[in-house]
């Protein structure tokens, strides 16, 4: 399997008081194309920090992180924006939709940053809304959607550009059980159909049941790395 993320002896420290707080301590991991993997662990174990560094929203303190062949530590602002725009999708616990845009425009936004012709763009947005089953809500505003629907819009926004890698930080934390299963099934389907790599940070037992690999973090260290040939469901 093609490896798309290399992490070698990653250390992340944050300034805290007079000294430093080590959020990630000597993490080495590799992720292959098409994985459906979760980072789990207690609160404060470093899950979000690791996702942010992989997403080049934050920089490593020490060690080497390579995502899709690009060394995160050495990217300029512009290059890391380019990487996110071309190859990464983000899904957040709080959905982070743009309140003044319609569902269609929220999804379209990801494509506006690429100079894609309007006709193609429209086709892609409608297709992405179909993936998540929200074709009929294209003209709604985020305020009119339920939590589950909002998160599905966020998934469509992350997926519309068919990124190589989707980073999802607690995507189900604000959802009830039914909606959680719904969006996980949606992501699982997209993972299989489009070969998109999914990387989650989660506490949620429901999520873990879908994962094919679970990496356990504790105090910034990897304490377990398990693979499942078949998902538990």
């Amino acid at each position: 399997m093609e490896t798309i993320i290399h992490i070698d002896k990653l250390i992340k420290r944050f300034p805290a008081g007079n000294g430093f707080f080590t959020a990630l301590n000597n993490v080495s991991l590799q992720f292959g194309k098409g994985e459906f993997t979760g980072l789990v662990g207690p609160s404060g174990s470093g899950k979000t920090t690791l996702l942010n560094i992989i997403g080049s929203l934050d920089a490593p303190t020490e060690g080497e992180v390579t995502v899709l062949g690009q060394s995160i530590a050495h990217l300029t602002h512009k290059e890391s924006a380019q990487l996110r725009n071309q190859s990464l999708g983000f899904i957040f616990q709080t959905y982070n939709l743009f309140p003044v845009y319609t569902v269609f425009e929220n999804v379209e936004f990801a494509l506006l940053l690429r100079r894609m012709p309007a006709v193609e763009r429209r086709k892609a947005v409608l297709e992405a809304l179909e993936w998540v089953g929200l074709s009929d809500k294209a003209h709604s505003k985020p305020a009119q959607l339920s939590g589950g629907e909002s998160q599905r819009v966020a998934i469509a926004r992350a997926m519309v550009k068919k990124p190589a890698l989707v980073l999802a930080d607690e995507p189900t934390a604000n959802l009830d059980s039914k909606n959680s299963h719904n969006i996980l099934q949606t992501m699982q389907r997209l993972n299989e159909e489009l070969q998109t790599t999914f990387l989650f940070a989660t506490h949620d037992e429901k999520v873990m049941n879908y994962l094919r690999r679970i990496i356990s973090l504790e105090d910034g260290r990897v304490v377990k790395d398990e693979r499942f040939v078949h998902t538990k469901i």
Binding site: L83, F90, R157
Partner: peptide, 16 residues
């Protein structure tokens, strides 16, 4: 701020 962060996550540069 959240919106700003999201713009950046979606691939905008800060200058944009």
């Amino acid at each position: 701020q959240k919106e700003i962060g999201t713009y950046i996550a979606l691939g905008m540069t800060r200058r944009q």
